[in-house]
Amino acid sequence: MDPFVINLVIFVLAIALGVEVITKVPSTLHTPLMSGSNAISGITIVGALLASFSETFFAIGVFLGFLAVIFATFNVVGGYVVTNRMLEMFKGKDSK
């Protein structure tokens, strides 16, 4: 099978999975869910790392890759840290 077809199948199935996972999230968690899933979308860091690495040093493409690494790392680190900070505060009656 063509890699594109395989990728498209993966994409569609992953969307279905995402819909399934998130549908029953309580409104209490909407913000951490958003910042948490936002950190996950920083996965583009993988692409950034791949683009920054090239045997031809120093091409424009590699430079864009470095910029992408900065933004994606910011997205990943900022997202996870801020989500953790928020979730730390969610306490029930029992845990007090």
Partner: peptide
Amino acid sequence: LNNSALIITGALVGASGLIL
């Protein structure tokens, strides 16, 4: 990049954002 990690993960986030 033909990278399944990006495809799957991006789709998960895309779907969760749409639900919200």
